[in-house]
């Protein structure tokens, strides 16, 4: 998904813009889903205080890390299989 900005002569600039915009959109969505998942997994929904506890904070750090790992595993599976989704 990395954008290539070193264009070979024949490539349309509009396409590159489109791809970059898509990649941003992809990352925004990745971020939003990740944030939602980690909120659900890590934060106590009784809201006894407005601060995140130490336990919640370290849970969040690990959760983000694990989400990226899952993202990577599935990305590899897909590019290895070359399956169209």
């Amino acid at each position: 998904m990395a954008a290539n900005t070193d264009l070979p002569p024949g490539v349309d600039k509009e396409q590159v813009f489109g791809m970059l915009a898509m990649e941003m959109e992809y990352k925004v969505e990745l971020f939003n889903r990740l944030a939602m998942a980690c909120f659900n997994k890590c934060v106590d929904k009784r809201y006894k205080e407005p601060e995140l506890t130490m336990g919640e904070n370290s849970c969040i750090d690990r959760c983000v890390s694990k989400y990226f790992l899952v993202n990577g595993i599935i990305g590899q599976m897909l590019s290895a299989g070359q399956r169209p989704m």
Partner: peptide
């Protein structure tokens, strides 16, 4: 792609004592 990652993360990962 984003939704398969979300789904499988949610269904498979529940332990946050380590970051790997």
């Amino acid at each position: 792609y984003n939704s398969v990652v979300e789904r499988c993360f949610n269904d498979c990962v529940d332990n946050f004592t380590r970051k790997s």
